[in-house]
C-alpha cells in the first residue's frame, strides 16, 4: 500500500523562489496537496504556528534568520507547535563540519543540492519509517544524533576488554 501523501502538510522554506518551485513541484507530484511556502525563516515561524505542518523542508542559508536558527526555535521555543516535527534540510554544504552543525541544531535529514526526485522521496520515507528517538540533555533537545541503530550494537565490547587489560597491567 502506498503512502497517502495527500494527508500530509508540508512547509517549504527557501528565500529562492526557483528552489521553492522546484521542491513544491516534486511534492505535488508525490501527491502532497497541503503545501505552505515561506520565503524567510521569520515568515516560516509565523506559518508554523498558524498551520502546524507535519514536515518542514528548509534551506540553510537565508537572509535574516538562518535555517539552523529556525530549527533551534522549532525544537526549543515553547511557542513551537510541534517540537518533534521532522525537518529535512536542503543544503549546498556537504562538508562534515557543516553536517555536524546542522545535526547539532536538531535537523532530521539532509538533501544535498542539486535536489533530485529520488532523494526527496528517500528522505520523506526516512522520516516516516525510521524516526530517530529524541534526546533531551542540558545543552540539546532534538533527534538522537547517533547513527540509527548504534544503540543496538551487539558486537564485542572492545573498550571493556581494553580497560580490563590496562587494569591488569597496572
Amino acid at each position: 500500500m502506498s503512502y497517502q501523501f495527500e494527508r500530509l502538510k508540508v512547509l517549504v522554506v527557501d528565500d529562492n523562489a526557483h528552489m521553492r518551485k522546484l521542491v513544491t513541484t516534486i511534492l505535488q507530484a508525490f501527491g502532497v496537496i497541503q503545501i505552505y511556502e515561506a520565503e524567510s525563516a521569520e515568515r516560516a515561524w509565523v506559518v508554523l504556528r498558524e498551520s502546524n505542518p507535519d514536515v518542514c523542508v528548509l534551506d540553510w542559508m537565508m537572509e535574516g534568520m538562518s535555517g539552523l536558527e529556525l530549527v533551534e526555535m522549532i525544537r526549543t521555543n515553547p511557542q513551537a507547535p510541534n517540537p518533534f516535527m521532522p525537518v529535512i534540510m536542503l543544503t549546498g554544504h556537504t562538508h562534515i563540519d557543516r553536517v555536524r552543525q546542522a545535526r547539532d541544531a536538531g535537523v532530521n535529514e539532509f538533501i544535498a543540492k542539486p535536489v533530485s526526485v529520488k532523494t526527496m522521496m528517500q528522505r520523506l520515507v526516512a522520516v516516516i519509517e525510521s524516526p530517530r528517538p529524541y534526546v533531551r540533555t542540558e545543552a540539546y533537545f532534538g533527534p538522537c544524533r547517533r547513527r540509527r541503530g548504534a544503540e543496538e550494537y551487539r558486537g564485542p565490547e572492545r573498550r571493556e576488554k581494553k580497560d580490563a587489560a590496562a587494569q591488569a597491567a597496572e
Binding site: L8, P86, I128, P131
Partner: peptide, 14 residues
C-alpha cells in the same frame, strides 16, 4: 532518551 509516537506514519499509512 525517548521515542515520540510516530504520528506521521499514523497519518500517511503505507
Amino acid at each position: 532518551l525517548f521515542m515520540p509516537p510516530n504520528m506521521l506514519k499514523a497519518k500517511v499509512g503505507g
